[in-house]
Simulated assay, not measured.
Amino acid sequence: MDNIVVYSKNNCMQCKMTKRYLSEHNVNFQEINVSNEPEYIDYLKGLGYQSVPVVMQNDNNPIVGFRPDALKGLVD
């Protein structure tokens, strides 16, 4: 699976756990850190999200928070 984007921020334990889970399962993803790129905060808020991590993949439903049960669906 491709085109996975993880929106995260600094000092976010759920973000770290989500990225670790994906990395340990060899899932390639692009990280957008809203602490370093604050313009994405308004983008996420505009979509109705109030917290990170938000994992988006193509047209699938986004995964919000550390959800190993949902992340399992991204593992080949």
Score class of each variant (00 low, 15 high):
M1F: 09
M1Y: 05
D2R: 12
D2K: 13
I4K: 06
I4Y: 01
V5L: 01
V5T: 15
S8Y: 02
K9A: 05
K9P: 01
N10S: 15
N10Q: 06
N10V: 12
N10A: 11
N10W: 03
N11A: 10
N11Q: 13
C12N: 00
C12T: 06
Q14Y: 01
Q14I: 05
Q14C: 07
Q14G: 04
Q14T: 10
C15M: 06
C15K: 01
M17Q: 14
M17D: 13
T18G: 02
T18H: 00
T18L: 01
T18F: 00
K19V: 10
K19P: 11
K19M: 13
K19A: 11
K19H: 03
R20T: 13
Y21T: 03
Y21Q: 06
L22K: 06
E24W: 04
H25V: 07
H25T: 09
H25G: 02
N26C: 04
N26G: 03
N26S: 13
V27A: 09
V27C: 04
N28D: 15
N28M: 14
F29H: 05
Q30G: 01
Q30I: 10
E31L: 09
E31S: 06
I32H: 04
I32F: 08
I32C: 03
I32D: 05
N33H: 04
N33I: 09
N33C: 06
V34A: 05
S35E: 05
N36V: 02
N36C: 04
E37I: 11
E37T: 14
Y40V: 08
I41E: 02
I41L: 03
I41M: 02
D42Y: 11
Y43G: 00
Y43C: 03
L44I: 07
L44S: 06
K45A: 14
K45P: 05
K45I: 11
G46N: 03
G46L: 04
G46T: 11
G46P: 00
Y49N: 13
Y49S: 10
Y49R: 14
Q50R: 12
S51E: 09
V52W: 03
P53W: 00
M56K: 12
Q57K: 12
Q57I: 04
N58R: 10
N58K: 15
N58W: 01
N58V: 11
D59C: 05
N61Q: 15
N61G: 06
I63K: 00
I63V: 15
V64M: 06
V64T: 14
V64D: 02
G65Q: 09
G65C: 11
G65A: 07
F66D: 08
F66Y: 15
F66T: 09
R67G: 08
R67D: 14
P68W: 10
D69G: 10
D69C: 13
L71S: 08
K72D: 15
K72V: 14
K72Y: 14
G73C: 04
L74M: 04
L74P: 10
V75S: 06
D76K: 12
D76V: 07
D76I: 06
